[in-house]
Design a protein around this nucleic acid. Structure first.
Lengths: 224, 224
DNA sequence: CCGAATCCTGTCCGATACTG
DNA sequence: CAGTATCGGACAGGATTCGG
């Protein structure tokens, strides 16, 4: 419940911060972006979140209309949390802010990304102007979570589930793939690191050129 | 300073939240979007912020490279805070999130908007598809803060300062103009409320059709 | 075992008073 | 004008416990 600390500001943006501006809230949304999850999945994907905080966020986000909870039918007992249509419309917010954050001069590359974070980052970093004439159909399998990724008509699609006709299939840990996309690591090196690539490696290599990293912003002139 | 509570998440988006995800941070950025401001201006435009919190945010945002502080040359004693180039790139983040928030089913219209909030909302709500063939040149004067607003080539520009050749000039309180843009209030009614309109009222009337309000998202099925 | 409620502790926020 | 000092209270973080 909570005493609901709010900005009393007529600005819709500020009222949006009242809904999803609290700590962890947008990360919960990010984790649900590709489909419903259970409490324990959220807890393990959001490393560091406390159970009571997660409970609180789920309660608040449901009350606001951003997510909904559903009880699973037997035999799979349990409940899952899913974005509402309105909640799913936060995807551009996450993508645009992710793109801004890519210029963070203090960006850290050491920490791992969750599967959802890695897949959302594709939409953030995709550059349509580089996709002229590119057609690609990829399937990713990150520990059993499948994604169908398609580039066509200068657009990128990232859908949960199996791809009907992939040209290349990538299986392994998402954190082994990301250096190929964002740091120019050769595909062969990622394979040596444990990533399994089946099919047309050239499609993956070409795909990896569509996600340019922007230059980092300047650090402040720390007069400390 | 401070023990800097951080998500230790490799996701650039999450690291962006580490920079501008704290309470009030993005509202400070919003207030600086059209030019530098002094501490006391920020304090009065952000109704409800405590001075120590504002100090803390300005310190943190400067350390992160989002804003910079400059001491004014004599005779105007004092210092001002300005966005860095990287900080200015947060404009799309605020606009996209503002657009999402416009569908908030609990959106409150009672509270006033600051001048910067009102001007940022134009960029959020502008619909290019409605601006086909529209050319408009407006000047707004909100208590001495001037803005040059231009629609041309299906694009909207909102710049601080005087417009070189306005077709219509609006003077008064920004909160008297907004119902004309977002709630279909007739220009004449806003004038009766105290807004001063000089020049071609038809330009303003046409301008007001470019900012459609989306349907609110459904409220959750409160099964309390 | 999953989802959540309940401690307790530490940090951050909010409001006001005060100072260079 | 531009902050600092102070303090109560709200919220986050972590561990433990409870109910289905």
């Amino acid at each position: 419940m909570a005493g609901k600390r709010r900005y009393e500001d007529g600005c819709a943006f500020a009222q949006g911060l009242d809904v999803v501006g609290e700590r962890w809230a947008l990360l919960v949304v990010r984790e649900l972006m590709f489909g419903p999850k259970r409490f324990s999945d959220l807890k393990s994907d959001l490393t560091g979140i406390a159970t009571n905080v997660l409970t609180q966020r789920l309660t608040d986000l449901e009350a606001a209309g951003v997510i909904s909870r559903r009880d699973l039918p037997p035999p799979t007992r349990g409940r899952v949390y899913a974005l509402t249509d309105w909640g799913r419309e936060l995807a551009p917010v996450i993508e645009v802010m992710g793109r801004w954050s890519a210029r963070n001069p203090r960006l850290q590359f050491g920490w791992p990304l969750s599967v959802s974070a890695a897949m959302m980052s594709l939409g953030s970093m995709f550059d349509p102007s580089r996709a002229e004439g590119v057609e690609a159909a990829l399937q990713f399998d990150f520990g059993g979570e499948l994604f169908a990724v398609t580039v066509a008509d200068r657009r990128l699609r990232v859908d949960p589930g199996r791809h009907p006709a992939p040209q290349v299939t990538v299986t392994g840990d998402q954190n082994e793939l990301l250096p190929v996309l964002y740091a120019g690591m050769p595909v062969a090196e990622a394979e040596a690191n444990g990533l399994a690539v089946e099919g047309d490696r050239e499609v993956l290599r070409r795909f990896a050129t569509l996600f340019p990293m922007p230059d980092p912003a300047p650090l402040p002139v720390t007069a400390t």
